[in-house]
Simulated assay, not measured.
Amino acid sequence: MIDKCMDVLKNQIHQYLKSLPDLNVTSNETVAVSPLVKEDGAVVIPKDQLGLSLINIEEEKINKAQNAVKKSADGQVMYRNPEIKINLYILIASNFNDYETGLKFLSAAMSFFQAKSVFISSNTPDLDPKLEKLIVELHTMGLEQQNHLWGYLGAKYLPSICYKVRMLIIQEELVSSEQAGVSKFALEGSGM
């Protein structure tokens, strides 16, 4: 699921960048899903591209599902673990030879998410049906947090911005057990 989410965001940003005449995008690769750095600290994001990197995953506790029971159309009661709702923190970093060009591309990516912050099947045809809906919010980090992040990653700072992608739902379809449902007639016959 995470890979599909990152891929759809990459494609959507790229399509938007290609639509802007002042950027003059002729390449098929303007955004890369990649880690920021290699183990030796060298930047992995290809030159003259924006890098889309996953920097954190957190469980969405507010909307946590509790129901482990689901009733099928034929009246069977199925038990499976409740779904997990997660939020992804993604970093968009600019790795351009020309600093000003990199800032233009980063600004354009920000404009894209300002214009389109909700991704559903009707406005994003390549959205995987299992994703249902993605909500992208700006996540502002202070200078100290940025310093810790880039230091932790082992990289020198690149112009970047962080976003929170909300409500990715992970639900394995494995059923742990299945039983016949209790009907009203069964309850009446038992004297209840």
Rank of each mutant, 00 (worst) to 15 (best):
E83K: 12
L106V: 10
E60F: 02
P82Q: 03
E59K: 14
I161E: 04
K10A: 08
S183K: 11
N67H: 10
S34C: 09
L149V: 10
L52Q: 06
V37N: 08
H139N: 15
S177Y: 10
E137R: 15
S27T: 12
N81G: 02
L134E: 05
S27V: 02
E137N: 14
G154S: 01
Y79H: 11
A180F: 13
A93N: 00
H148W: 08
I84H: 04
I86P: 02
I92Q: 02
E100C: 09
S122L: 03
P21K: 14
S72W: 09
R80L: 11
G102V: 08
L138Q: 01
I13M: 10
L17P: 03
M6C: 11
E60Q: 09
Y157M: 06
Q12N: 12
F112R: 04
N81L: 12
C162E: 00
P82T: 04
G102H: 10
V31W: 02
P129A: 05
C5P: 04
L52T: 04
N87W: 07
D128A: 13
I55N: 07
E144C: 00
S121M: 01
I57M: 14
V77Y: 08
K133P: 01
V43E: 05
M110I: 13
L153V: 05
H14E: 12
A68T: 11
I86H: 00
S176E: 14
K18I: 12
K61I: 13
K164C: 14
G181C: 10
K18F: 05
N95D: 05
N56G: 10
D128M: 05
L168D: 00
L103D: 06
V136I: 13
S94D: 03
G102M: 07
E173G: 11
